[in-house]
């Protein structure tokens, strides 16, 4: 066990898998010499290649060319490699949406199950750094809406390592989303091989009065809210989904059946956010257990503003979670 940053945990997962499996390679903008936009790939280029352009192989600095980054990975994966490709900010994924939506996600089904596309799209999301409307988005719902694609969003360094190793070993396209504000945060991470299964949520805090479901950075806000609620005599259960797709329905439903109340917290905008899917599943399968309407705490249906004065209003936080819980505890 070592206390390392979220970014270092990503590095360690990549390093472990690249040493274990010669078919794993890393490609994307600035992943090589620079070591990734958040430094998480630092050292890998020198360790594995240390070469540029046509000479590079296992750590490949690409052009600013998202379509080719994701698109080439589809072909490489179909031909036996296990690419980890980096899209610096998830906002840029729109440039290459066809390669995710119509190629990576559908190739296996369209060819009748004969080929597989084992690839990881590693990317970052999230606001709170004044990055404005095109560098702050949290777009897990966009990719989760594509059959054939899995989506994971760790909230802490240990899960980052364990889920990235699982994503690389998965024989399907997996989108691995890190929150910018989590990158420098530290936590205890098991050394060596450490696997967190895809599709398994984590109950971070047990409680009996209300279930708060969250993922990525918002888990911190949910936990903070739970502590504040405890002071007021409200016992909240906090679930970190960790995997967006496939959704761990059992953990979600078991908790809601226990508490009878549900608040879903995500940083993505509200309309058609993944919280709507979680709410729908609960309404379909545990409606009888609900004592109050399901609440969502999300960003509004609005582009992320630049000025800190507005961004603080835009983003969900612990206080908004507390307010949502209190509303249904009356």
């Amino acid at each position: 066990m070592s206390k390392i940053t979220f970014g270092r945990a990503i590095h360690d997962a990549l390093q472990f898998e690249m040493n274990r499996c010669p078919e794993v390679y890393l490609a994307g903008e600035d992943v090589g010499f620079r070591g990734g936009d958040f430094g998480e790939d630092m050292g890998l280029w020198a360790e594995f290649d240390g070469k540029h352009g046509a000479e590079s192989r296992r750590v490949v600095d690409t052009a600013i060319s998202e379509t080719a980054i994701i698109g080439h990975a589809v072909g490489a994966a179909a031909c036996g490699l296990r690419p980890v490709v980096e899209i610096m900010h998830m906002d840029f994924m729109g440039v290459a949406m066809d390669e995710i939506l119509n190629q990576a996600g559908k190739m296996r089904y369209m060819n009748g199950g004969k080929l597989q596309v084992p690839m990881v799209i590693k990317t970052t999301a999230g606001g709170g750094v004044g990055a404005a409307a095109q560098h702050s988005q949290t777009l897990e719902a966009f990719v989760a809406h594509t059959p054939g694609v899995k989506v994971v969003m760790p909230s802490n360094p240990a899960d980052a390592k364990g889920l990235l190793i699982s994503a690389i070993r998965d024989n399907n396209p997996v989108v691995f989303i890190s929150h910018k504000l989590l990158m420098a945060g530290k936590g205890e991470v098991p050394d060596g091989e450490y696997v967190v299964p895809i599709g398994k949520a984590n109950v971070c805090r047990e409680g009996k009065d209300v279930t708060i479901i969250s993922w990525s950075k918002m888990v911190k806000d949910a936990m903070q809210a739970a502590e504040e609620l405890e002071d007021e005599g409200i016992d909240a259960e906090v679930i970190d989904l960790r995997t967006i797709k496939p959704l761990d329905e059992m953990t979600v439903l078991d908790s809601v059946r226990k508490t009878g109340r549900l608040v879903i917290v995500h940083e993505a905008t509200r309309v058609c956010g993944f919280g709507a899917e979680v709410a729908a599943v609960v309404a379909e399968k545990a409606f009888d257990a609900l004592k109050a309407p399901i609440q969502r705490v999300t960003a509004p249906d609005c582009p992320s503003p630049f000025t800190p004065a507005l961004e603080v209003e835009y983003l969900p936080n612990a206080a908004k979670v507390v307010a949502a819980v209190k509303k249904i505890m009356k």
Binding site: G75, A76, C79
Partner: peptide, 9 residues
């Protein structure tokens, strides 16, 4: 891009 990736492999 898929052919490019196949060639990469």
């Amino acid at each position: 891009p898929i052919a490019t990736g196949a060639a990469f492999a």
